[in-house]
Design a binder for these strands. Structure first.
Length: 892
RNA sequence: GCCCGAGUGGUGAAAUUGGUAGACACAACGGACUUAAAAUCCGUCGCUUAGGUAAAACUGGCGUACCGGUUCGAUUCCGGUUUCGGGCACCA
């Protein structure tokens, strides 16, 4: 009573005594609020991350954007999620670092350069300026002093430095690899630039070509990359599964097939790797890649085979294309011999065997491999059963599931191995191969070494000098960085750097003779593999990272980015962390403690086909879609000319498909808080989301309601928030809901990371507040308590409006200095609860009982319930199941 | 083709550990306020060729992509199918 009396006193103070500087605006004006709040944040440097602090650190990182031109909704989603988590942790007492930067090298800059005749550097820096201003409008709590741009020499010099260290160590090596070659433009094409087997600009049929490239020996770390997945408790299972499958550790056997002297004419063995050595006795042929030495030899006097090999070399290198194309082959006329029984086996050239994978040759067991089965049927090759599953009859007429089953199968038609199961046959056959020196057990990975050479201009130069005498020499530290000239416009026909003597002419660092600088640049995945570490000390001029700063900030506590990066980027970054660890630069084995994979924001795509077959992608904003009465699209037309366009798939927003939606219009019309709130309310973060702006209005309406609720309260005069005292039932119920909401939202932000449900709970709380009539001083203090908490709960998502309302509710304090609301346990106490009554699992009624009612009483009450009696109709219940706190199910 | 996900009202979604399907919103419809409109506020809102009623209320039945299984009870677990999305190593 004492407290409420004091509050009552405050409440009846005349309005002009209150320490309230100005009357609160009656209406919500986001543009003015957001501008002034952002200005205050900047002035007070609220989001500067402290390198030294008593508080625990929280490093919250969102995947940095490629500066494509404008933000799209995927960015808004990604960065709002990061900002919500950052602000929540700040309120929870953490020293938060939320940095931002630019993944600034890449192919789109070269395309834009060619289209607009402007150097990639100029285009990129202009995009960065524009997008940075857009990010600032969103009100993200970013420490901009740590901004990093990967295309600056200050950044990429350290990448070059690490390259030279790893090259000298042997972790980077050179060999040839297959690329897409455009024979008209005389240039290497990215997979994305190969459309239906043709070059995107020239329209020429693409060919495979072997060129020298530098590789990171990531396979040396394969085992560790696989094993350490088990330590990543904060990663989604889905991502860990994908990475494990990608690394693809297999237990198998190398098998050597000795050459048949008569047909091949020389000594030698054909090497293959198999995970099914138990089927070795069922091998009926071997298949080699078009580039394999045996294929070349056989083609020498065989024009048909020469033509077939040329055909195999046509088309791109993408695995999806290889896997879905029609399987074709041709006999070489050459033979190898079976390593165990000496049988002659024909050697075929097949388009599905790739030179770059393993040995460029495979053994074929048509009876027990579906792909081999189809191939053998097509070319009338022998199908020899060597495995049987009891109770089944083998027939070479059609493939059956069990043919490939290694769990139940045992060897048949396999001489001395007959009757052995998979493991026994595996062991016996590999032992016999080893004793003949024709093979051995081997663990192998699906993961291949990472080729990083790109024959492109807008990337980090590879710091290698080619000397006729000394070979490949790493550029010495004192000559780093190798600076990329920035005033170049590429023409799409080969690498510009290779045409610039002023760039490539140099002296050998070892012998001083004239030498040639490498003109390839690095894969842009290299830059994005270590930026997270650079943020700890972004201006460090003495090394890749300042070791103390890296130790202070790493690992990243929360990483947030699109699910499309689940494999490549995240695997390369994990690999780089281990490389840097082994150089003594960072500690720990993994860079990202917790990972949140954001679902794609997808949108429909529209295009028109030009006469030459090229697709011109049209932005959804410029297209009008006609719908039937069930809301299905029946057609689409360009709004400008009314002529039809083709409807493509619904895909992730991207520059290349021109289906990105710029958030600017929403920010301009409703403000950043509405844009953020709407994006977070639309779906949980991990779910993919088809973009639609219906509902933006509703998000804005909610913020207006919050503003009005605060305004109406403040108009009546401020009071201190409720502490203790007697309450009406309605006020008690409101406080119960408030503290349940605090508890729920704490869990939603902290553990579940579902912001849509947090918003729904705040909406419900405000709906309850709207229905609550505050008549007494104590009741008004409860309203003050609810409003203060609601604004704090909302602030990670809609920080500007929250900041502004807070300043009205608590005039002498600032919202960004407040902690997260604390649950009052006494408000949560309930004496009675509602239980559901089911009969046979179907809802039939409910029961309000004292909280601690025992099980036997509950059973009796349930059986006595009117609806239950009616259904039982005098028959005794078979069973009664009581789920404490939830329900009672009567089984009859 | 292979690997990983997802599918719930007209729409976005919720149901957190197997326990009340559709919270919270959007759209739509009806009403209040207004000279009018906007804004705001209130109400209705899964399907039903089942019963019930003048109309409602109400009482059933069905319903979480599809087929099957486990369970007292399945949106949730298991097997299969299907559609959509992500990745497949040079888009980032």
């Amino acid at each position: 009573m004492k407290a409420s009396a004091a509050l009552g006193c405050a409440a009846i103070m005349p309005h002009f005594f209150l320490p309230h500087p100005a009357t609160m605006q009656a209406n919500y004006h986001p543009e003015a609020i957001e501008k002034s709040v952002q200005h205050a944040w900047d002035e007070q440097q609220v989001f500067l991350a402290q390198d030294t602090s008593d508080k625990p650190k929280y490093y919250c990182l969102s995947m940095f954007p490629y500066p494509s031109g404008k933000l799209h909704m995927g960015h808004v989603r990604n960065y709002t999620i990061g900002d919500v988590l950052s602000r929540y942790h700040r309120m929870k007492g953490f020293n938060v670092m939320q940095p931002m930067g630019w993944d600034a090298f890449g192919l789109p800059a070269e395309n834009a350069a060619m289209a607009h005749n402007v150097p990639p550097a100029e285009w990129t820096y202009a995009n960065i300026d524009y997008m940075k201003q857009q990010l600032k409008l969103l009100g993200l709590g970013i420490d901009w002093t740590r901004e990093v741009k990967t295309c600056t020499p200050e950044y990429y010099r350290w990448e070059q430095w690490l390259f030279t260290k790893l090259f000298n160590k042997g972790v980077i090596y050179k060999r040839t690899s297959t690329v897409n070659w455009d024979p008209v433009d005389n240039t290497v094409l990215a997979n994305e630039q190969v459309i239906d087997g043709r070059g995107w600009r020239s329209g020429a049929l693409v060919e495979k070509r072997e060129i020298p490239m530098y590789f990171f020996r990531i396979t040396q770390y394969a085992d560790e990359l696989l094993k350490d997945l088990d330590t990543l408790d904060g990663w989604p299972e889905q991502v860990k599964t994908m990475q494990a499958n990608w690394i693809g550790k297999s237990y198998g056997c190398d098998v050597h097939f000795p050459y048949d002297q008569t047909s091949i004419g020389t000594d030698g063995v054909l090497k293959v790797y198999t995970t099914r050595p138990d089927t070795l006795m069922g091998v009926t042929y071997v298949a080699v890649a078009a580039e394999h030495a045996l294929a070349t030899q056989a083609a020498a006097n065989n024009p048909a085979l020469t033509e077939f090999i040329a055909e195999c070399k046509r088309g791109g290198t993408a695995e999806a294309d290889m896997a879905t194309m029609e399987k074709k082959g041709m006999n070489t006329g050459l033979f190898v011999t079976h390593p165990l029984n000496g049988e002659k086996l024909p050697v075929w050239v097949a388009n599905y065997v790739l030179m770059g994978y393993g040995e460029g040759a495979v053994m074929a067991v048509p009876a027990h491999d579906e792909r081999d089965f189809e191939f053998a049927q097509k070319y009338n090759l022998a199908i020899k059963q060597s495995i049987n599953v009891a109770g089944n009859a083998f027939s070479d007429a059609a493939w059956q599931e069990w043919y490939g089953d290694k769990a139940q199968g045992v060897c048949v038609n396999s001489d001395k191995y007959d009757g052995l199961n998979f493991q026994a046959a595996f062991d016996a056959i590999s032992a016999d191969l080893a004793s003949k020196n024709l093979g051995a057990k081997k663990e192998q990975f699906r993961l291949r070494d990472w080729g990083i050479s790109r024959q492109r201009y807008w990337g980090c130069p590879i710091p290698i000098i080619h000397c006729a005498k000394c070979g490949d020499v790493a550029v010495p530290d004192e000559q780093l960085p190798v600076i990329l000239p920035e005033n170049v416009v590429p023409d799409g026909a080969g690498s510009p750097l290779a045409k610039m003597p002023e760039f490539f002419e140099c002296k050998c660092p070892k012998c001083g003779d004239d030498a040639k600088r490498e003109t390839d640049t690095m894969d842009t995945f290299v830059e994005s593999s270590w930026y997270y570490a650079r943020y700890a000390s972004p201006q460090c001029s003495t090394g890749m990272v300042d070791k103390a700063a890296a130790q202070q900030w790493l690992p990243v506590d929360q990483y947030i980015g699109g699910i499309e990066h689940a494999i490549l980027h995240l695997l390369y970054a994990r690999f780089f962390h281990k490389l840097m660890r082994d150089e003594g630069l960072v500690q720990g084995d993994e860079p990202f403690k917790n990972l949140l994979t954001q679902g794609m924001v997808i949108a429909p795509t529209f295009y028109r086909e030009a006469a030459n077959g090229k697709k011109l992608w049209l932005n959804p904003a410029d297209v009008t879609v006609s719908l039937d009465d069930k809301g299905r699209a029946t057609g689409a037309a360009l709004t400008a000319d009314g002529l039809p366009v083709v409807i493509g798939g619904t895909e992730k927003m991207s520059k290349s498909k021109n289906n990105g939606v710029d958030p600017q219009a929403i920010i301009d019309q409703y403000g950043a808080d509405t844009a953020r709130l709407f994006m977070m309310f639309a779906a949980p973060p991990e779910q993919s989301l088809e973009w639609s702006d219906s509902g933006v209005e509703g998000a804005f309406r909610f913020l207006k309601r919050v503003w009005k609720a605060a305004h109406d309260h403040i108009e009546q005069g401020l009071v201190a928030a409720y502490r203790a005292g007697e309450l009406s039932a309605a006020a008690q119920a409101l406080r119960l809901q408030l503290h349940q909401t605090i508890q729920k939202i704490d869990d939603d932000y902290g553990r579940r990371k579902t912001f849509n449900t947090a918003i729904a709970a705040i909406m419900e709380l405000l709906n309850a507040l709207a229905k609550f009539d505050a008549n007494t001083a104590v009741e008004r203090s409860v309203v003050q308590e609810v409003l203060e908490a609601a604004v704090l709960l909302l602030s990670p998502i809609a920080p500007h409006i929250s900041d502004a309302i807070w300043a009205e509710l608590r005039p002498d304090t600032r919202l960004h200095e407040q902690g997260f609301p604390v649950v009052d346990a006494t408000a949560l106490v309930q004496n009675e609860i509602d239980l559901v009554i089911q009969v046979n699992g179907k809802l039939r009624g409910s029961l309000r009982v004292a909280k601690d009612t025992d099980k036997a009483t509950l059973e009796t009450l349930a059986l006595a319930h009117e609806a239950v009696q009616k259904l039982l109709a005098g028959v005794a219940a078979k069973k009664v199941i009581v789920v404490p706190g939830r329900l009672i199910n009567v089984v009859m």
